[in-house]
Structures are given as C-alpha cells and as structure tokens.
C-alpha cells in the first residue's frame, strides 16, 4: 500500500510531507520506546507512536522509515515538523488509539516485518 492508503485506513490528517504520499510501504512498527525501535526494527517503513518529541523523527530517520503516525490525535510542534520536512518523512495523526491503529493497518495488509 502507499502512504496515502495508510492515511485513508486510519482516517488520518497529514501534517507534513504531502509530496511523498505515493511512496510504497510494506511494514510497520508501533512503539513509544525509541530504544526498542532502534533495537528490533528492520526495514520497516511506518512508525506508529504516542510520543511527541524530535527524537521520534531522529529515530525514524536512523531506521530509514518514511512515515510517522501519531496516535490519539496528537499534534507535533513546529520543531518536529521542520525536522521531518528536512528528512523527507511524512507526518500524520490519527484519532485512533495505538492498538486500534495497528490493528487497522494489519487488517489492511501491513505486517510487522522481520
């Protein structure tokens, strides 16, 4: 699926990175613990998180992730948006909670990867 599909499945609002919505994504990861993302995630392209700080974008960047979904409608600050723009990472927020958001994407075909 594409990042635009992720947006649609999660009824999400795109915050930044509109130009990258046709990027293909195959795997996702849901976590509020960035150390775990850095430890266990491989070749995953979407990060779902309830955490709002610049380290979320830095972590995603280190892992070559292309899209961050903030759950429960959380809105990142300007500093986070600027960093994501600089790194070419799409930001969006969904009204769904973490469990539901992950479930919806899993049901739609996204997997957890290796």
């Amino acid at each position: 699926m594409t990042i635009a599909d992720v947006r649609d499945f999660l009824e999400a609002e795109v915050i930044s990175g509109e130009g990258h919505l046709d990027t293909e994504v195959h795997n996702a990861c849901g976590s509020d613990m960035m150390s775990d993302v850095l430890a266990f995630v491989k070749d995953q392209s979407v990060l779902l998180t309830g955490l709002i700080n610049p380290q979320v974008v830095r972590t995603a960047d280190m892992m070559d992730m292309v899209c961050i979904v903030f759950v429960r409608g959380k809105k990142p600050g300007d500093e986070i948006i600027a960093l994501a723009n600089e790194r070419g990472i799409v930001l969006m927020n969904t009204p769904y909670r973490m469990f539901t958001a992950c479930g919806l994407l899993y049901e739609a075909g996204l997997r957890g990867g290796n």
Binding site: M33, S35, A39
Partner: peptide, 15 residues
C-alpha cells in the same frame, strides 16, 4: 518519558 532509558543503549551499540 522521552522514549529512552530502557537499558538498550550500550547493548544496541555493541550489536
């Protein structure tokens, strides 16, 4: 609360 401090830093570096 910022997403770190899980005791994975040095093990990750080693890995």
């Amino acid at each position: 609360s910022l997403g770190f401090g899980a005791g994975m830093g040095l093990p990750n570096i080693k890995k």
